[in-house]
Structures are given as structure tokens and as C-alpha cells.
Design a protein around this nucleic acid. Structure first.
Lengths: 386, 386
DNA sequence: CCTCCTTAATTCACGCCGTAGACTAACCCC
DNA sequence: GGGGTTAGTCTACGGCGTGAATTAAGGAGG
């Protein structure tokens, strides 16, 4: 953030409107009275602002609340159906688009397969646009109700929506621009893992928390650093590349070419390889086999994985002093399902006492639509701040 | 940051006033014309706001600038002498207070020794207050010109000014409160390393940069993560504990009790110990001897140190994707003086290409008053934002 | 049923703000 | 010294949030 701009007197209104809206969105139903307290605005202003929001249908009344001899307070809440956000996921083999309302409830889904190895940006944009059209078809939503579309993609996303993803051959693919040409509503593009991390804070294991790190363990290892409920991007949009943090200088060779990366110890494929399993194509099944294998050799590999993961987490706790760490990603969830206490213990061993006491380490709670939900939160975040 | 509050219409003025002031402070002298462009405010508002600032003496005119046939532009600049900030440093053996003007030029200094091993918070607060009084004595500054005092202290500082520093036996020392009881102007307390990091961005090797990591290598190893020109604190104020990031799981024993911490390879004492020097008390001299020792054994130790430091830096680059990394701390400066290219090369080897291309790794530029200067920037930052 | 009390929400007059557009100031060139 | 050009100021206007007064909506007590 360079310089927060606030200039005209009507920006003031916009800002206060957003302030009230956010208070209602994240703080649940509340009366004008409570809102005045939590936002610091005067009762008079609250009447004005809420009148605006009510008129626009953004919020609605939600019953009264008892009185001790005075006029009862009218509860207000965000009208979940006032706006809808589209969330898209660009995966290895498919493109998927989900429709969410403001409460992040899903209202429709569309999925198209991608031809193997084919990730032409224009084709991807076409499929996303087609999915958006299809998912909206039949619902009869006026266009004004569609707040926008967020897309979660692999690789590094610059601020403008330009994407770099080696695996897809994208070197500066202008996906944001391509989507904006095709869609009549605002478009947001973000790295899928970062979007997912934001989703965990909005509707998963990080509800109520504003600063956290969401750790994603799959074949690769990554992290989404979330501050102020928003994914931290860094200067080029690549912040959160956690997998290639050196945890054993001169250690195991990593697929990135370096040595001793965290991913070379904790990534699913490394675990499988260290166990000596043959890659039969189904990484997930192989990983589960390692976890369930009772042989001492397998137990050693798993224990080592837990140790390295804990070391990595300890480093994160020390460096970032987050309020919560959320372990996710398919391998992370499988590993954490039975071994979360051991992971916590390993993290404690490598973290300093002070910051470790402030953090809670939890498992991610979001299902398979985490990426699309996260992408949709980009849209909702924009709606809530402007 | 939870929720940015902006409510009344006069907060709007305060915000715009601060916006203009910051533009002038960080952007150097500028005409109203240029300010209108850079802040987005209208020319009329700029006249109003600058008239206010001129009236208060916060800014002043700084000559005219040529014209190509039109009215010449009047340059405005911050009046460095309008306000003064006190910066205090609480060291192992002394307490020091420096006085800075808004341009961060030093205008006076006072230093008191601390009795060996004696760090009673009330005593420290007394000495800081005495130092502040002494440094102000004779300058005849009206109290309104003193914007406040910032204190850089060891350990973990909570938001309220409560300090935890094991080495000093401070467990929740209420230094902020103690200072506020003694001083008639605002008080800010922050970890010394974080304050120093902020200083490097304001007047050192990070000028013009808003997001950077300042790495401090001495006997201990730490980092100050600076985003938006402010030190990142984390949830409990302990963010930036970089020294105990595991870089060699199961490796060398660290004084923190864990194994394989970065500090156990890069910290000055570790370097000296690996070289086999005897600790003759003067760590600095011993460290320099290792650096200058031409023996193959010493060269190996130094090369190893560079490698581990590079690995750590690579991890930071990947995780945080900063715009700049500034290497500081006495040992960091000594090491970097001759070996910065090697350190950069080592960092490149452990960082991913994309984020490494966005970062520049530089040596810190601030001298011995870095901590007091940094502490004073806390005061100035407050002045500039409100 | 009516009155009094309490609390929530609204209305109203006021002062302040930023802006557009008209206007003045200050300089250059010829 | 007149025309041209650009910087900065002045004025009228509409919008905002606020405090104080006012209205709305219920409970308690008789």
C-alpha cells in the first residue's frame, strides 16, 4: 500500500457505508445502536447510512430484539441474496466456475474439461466465460446483481492480472484482460493458493481471525500469508512461496534444482519417494499407503515428514508471529487428520516460546470448492470495500 | 489493521492534510501543481490545505522554479525545524537519547551508563526522562515543538508498550506507561531492531522503497519486515524472529536449545566458535580476525557462513517477495563489506528466479545512531499520519 | 385502559469540506 | 507594453456527519 487516498466528501460517505457494511458482514446481525458503537459513527449517521443500504437492498431487517422497558432494537443484517459472485478455478485438467451469494453459499456450478496439456489462455478465458454464462442461465439474475468474477489460477499473478505459470507455458499471459473482454462485470485474478487461503479466513478454519498463514501441502508446498483478511502479495505477487525455503542446506535434491528445500521433505512426492513406493500414477493413493503402512521404515519416513513440517511451521511462527496457522492442501489434510498433535509438537520444538503461545495450528475446513470460493471472496472483498 | 476508521468531515481534512504532508515529506519539495497531481486532490483544495500547513509553520516555501512563459511554480517543502522527535535506545550498558528534527538531522545527544546487570524498568524510564530533559536543555524549544519520544528496546514489545525481554529480566515491563508518567509528550515503544529497520527505509539504504526486509546479523540474528514504511509486528509484536528459522534440521545446537537454527551458522559467535577462536571477550575483534584469516580452514568457515546466510535470504525472498533486502547489524556489515557479491550469489542459488529478479540486496547505511533514529521515526510517522 | 418511564431511532439546523469554474497573479516572448 | 501561458486563489454550491430536539415503540404500575 503506497498512499491511502481519500479525497472528496462523498468518498467519506462511501467509506462509512463500507465500514458499516463490513461490520454487519463480519460481525453478524446487529442493531443500529451496536453499529454506532462498533464503528464510532453517530446514531444520526447510522440512520442515514443504513437507510441507504436498506434502500439499495444490500441489507435487510432481521427481527427485533427484546427490550428492558425501552423501544426494542431492530436487527440489521446483510442480505445474502443481494449480490452474487462467480468463482473460477483453472486446474490442470479442467476449468470450473461456481456461483456464490454473499454468504458464500453455492448456487450453481459448471465444469469443462481442458484438452490434455492444452492451456491456451484464450481457450481458458473462453471456457471460464462459457461456464459463467451457463451457471447464470436460468437463474434470472439481473446483471446488476452479479458483482464480478474471481479466478484462481496457478503460478504468479501480477497486480494487473498478468499470469506467469511455467507448467502451463504462461509467460505473462494476460488472463485478466482476456476475461474482461468477455465478461460485462469486474474481473479479479489471483493465485489459487492465495485465494484458497483467503477463503479459509472468510468461511473456514480462520473465521474471526484477520492475520494468519494458510499452509498448503500437496505435491508442491506453498503458503498463503493473509493479513487484514487479504492475501499478502509481495512486490511481484509471488509472496508465499514456502516450499523452497531451505530447511537442510546441502540436503535432498529438490525438483526446483536447489537442495534441501522444505518441499523435498514434506511434499507428497518426496514422501512417497523416500518410502520407496513406485509411482503408479495415483499420487494420492500412494501417499495414503505410506501413511497407513505400519512398517518401521514407513513410520520413520512419516515421522521425518512431521519433523520437517514442524520445523518449517516453527520458522513461520517465529518470522511472522501469526494468530493462526491453517494446514491445508490434500496431503496436508491427510497427514494432519491423524497427526495434528505431533505436528503441533514438532512446531513447538522449533518455535520460540513467546510467539508459539500466541498461535493456534488448525486443519483447513474447506472442501473441494475452496479455490472457487476463495476466488469469489476476491469479488466480495471488493464489494465490501467500495 | 482491523478496520480503517474515517468518520467525520473534519477527519477528511486531517486525512488530506496528512496526505499532502506525506507527499512533501517523502517526495521532496514540490509545487502545489505537482502535489495536486500526486495526491489526486483538486487545485483549490491544495490551496486550502497548504495554507493551513503554511500557517502552522509545518511547511514553508522553498523558492520558485522556472517557467516556460507562465507563472512560476512556488516550491513547498517540509519545515525541518517545525517539530523535533526524541529517540531513545536502551542498550546493555547504557541508555541514550538523541534529538532529531523532521529531516532526521541530529540536534543533540545524551547518554547515561547503566549499572552492570541493572535494568530495572523504573530506573531505565528515569534515565530516559533525564536524558530527554538534558538534551532539550538550552535549546529553548517550546514544548509544542516536541512531537514525542520513541524508545527502541530489546525483546518483544506489545502494542501497549509492555515489554518482554528475558535478558533484562523484563516480563511484561510497562515501560510505555512508566515513560508516559514522566514525559509530557507522546511516547512510542518498539523493539530496537524493528525501529532500526524502519530507519533504514526512511533515511538509509531503503529510501523510496515501501516494502523491504532489513536483516540484522550480530551475535544474534534478526529481521525487521517493513511493509508500507512501517515495521510489521505480528499478533504479539514478535514478528521478525528470523535467527531461529531452521536451516539444517538436526544440525548444530543453538543457544535457544533447538538445533539447526540459522543463528547457529550465521551469528557472529557461531562463526567464531566454528573457526576455533578463543573467546577473549571482544566478539567484534574476534569476528574480524576470522574474516581476515587467510587459512583454508577460516575461508571454509566464512564460505559456509555466506552459504547459510544466502540460504536464509533465499527463503525470505521466496516467502515475502520483498522489493529490497538490507543487510545490517555489525557482523552483517563486516561480512557484507567484502563479500556482498558472494552473499547475493548464494541467495540467488536458494531463491526462485521470479522473486529474486525483483529484489535488490544492499548493505545498510546507517551508523551508530540507527536505533535512536529509528525510534524517532516512530514519532515522525505518527506526526505524518495524523 | 391510561400514564409515566426508558431506550431506539429519526429529524433538523449547523458548520465544515472539496470541487468546478471564474478569476487573478506572475512570468515569458516579441 | 501587449499578448500568451501557466500557477494559484476565490466564490458559490452541494454533500457530509453531528448534536440536540423530537418521535417511535415498548414495559411497568396503577
Amino acid at each position: 500500500m503506497g498512499s491511502a487516498r481519500r479525497s472528496t466528501v462523498s468518498d467519506l460517505r462511501r467509506g462509512n457505508r463500507a465500514l458499516v457494511l463490513r461490520a454487519l458482514y463480519f460481525g453478524g446481525p446487529a442493531s443500529r445502536q451496536e453499529l454506532a458503537l462498533s464503528t464510532g459513527l453517530s446514531a444520526a449517521t447510522l440512520t442515514n447510512v443504513t437507510a441507504d443500504l436498506l434502500f439499495d437492498g444490500v441489507i435487510g431487517e432481521a427481527g427485533h430484539v427484546g427490550s428492558d422497558g425501552g423501544r426494542p432494537r431492530v436487527l440489521l443484517r446483510v442480505n445474502a441474496g443481494h449480490g452474487y459472485a462467480l468463482g473460477a478455478e483453472v486446474g490442470e485438467t479442467h476449468v470450473r466456475v461456481d456461483l456464490f451469494d454473499l454468504a458464500m453459499s453455492e448456487h450453481g456450478s459448471a465444469e469443462y474439461p481442458l484438452p490434455p496439456g492444452e492451456h491456451d489462455p484464450a481457450l481458458v478465458a473462453d471456457l471460464i466465460a462459457a461456464g459463467a454464462d451457463r451457471v447464470l442461465l436460468g437463474l434470472g439474475l439481473p446483471r446488476a446483481r452479479i458483482l464480478g468474477l474471481g479466478a484462481g489460477v496457478p503460478g504468479i499473478v501480477e497486480r494487473s492480472g498478468v499470469v506467469h505459470a511455467q507448467a502451463y507455458g504462461w509467460r505473462g499471459a494476460g488472463l485478466g484482460g482476456l476475461l474482461r473482454e468477455r465478461l460485462p462485470y469486474p474481473v479479479f485474478v489471483e493465485n489459487g493458493a492465495k485465494a484458497m487461503g483467503q477463503a479459509e479466513l472468510w468461511s473456514g478454519a480462520g473465521q474471526g481471525v484477520t492475520d494468519a498463514v494458510v499452509v498448503l501441502v500437496g505435491s508442491g508446498v506453498g503458503a498463503a500469508i493473509v493479513t487484514g483478511r487479504r492475501a499478502y502479495r509481495g512486490v511481484g505477487g509471488s509472496a508465499g512461496e514456502w516450499g523452497h525455503t531451505p530447511v537442510a542446506v546441502g540436503g535432498r535434491l529438490c525438483r526446483c534444482g536447489s537442495r534441501g528445500c522444505l518441499e523435498a521433505y514434506v511434499g507428497a512426492e518426496s514422501v512417497i519417494a523416500r518410502h520407496g513406493s513406485t509411482g503408479d500414477g495415483d499420487t494420492r493413493a500412494a501417499f495414503t499407503r505410506v501413511l497407513d503402512d505400519p512398517s518401521p521404515e514407513a513410520r520413520r519416513v512419516v515421522a521425518e515428514t512431521v519433523t520437517y513440517l514442524g520445523a518449517g511451521l516453527g520458522g513461520l511462527v517465529n518470522l511472522l508471529n501469526p494468530e493462526r496457522i491453517i494446514l491445508g492442501g490434500w496431503a496436508g489434510l491427510l497427514l494432519g487428520a491423524g497427526r495434528l498433535p505431533a505436528i503441533r509438537e514438532a512446531a513447538r520444538a522449533y518455535a520460540l516460546t513467546q510467539p508459539y503461545e500466541k498461535v493456534t495450528i488448525e486443519l483447513g475446513r474447506l472442501g473441494p470448492d475452496a479455490v472457487t470460493a476463495g476466488a469469489a471472496t476476491l469479488v466480495v472483498a471488493d464489494f465490501l470495500s467500495g
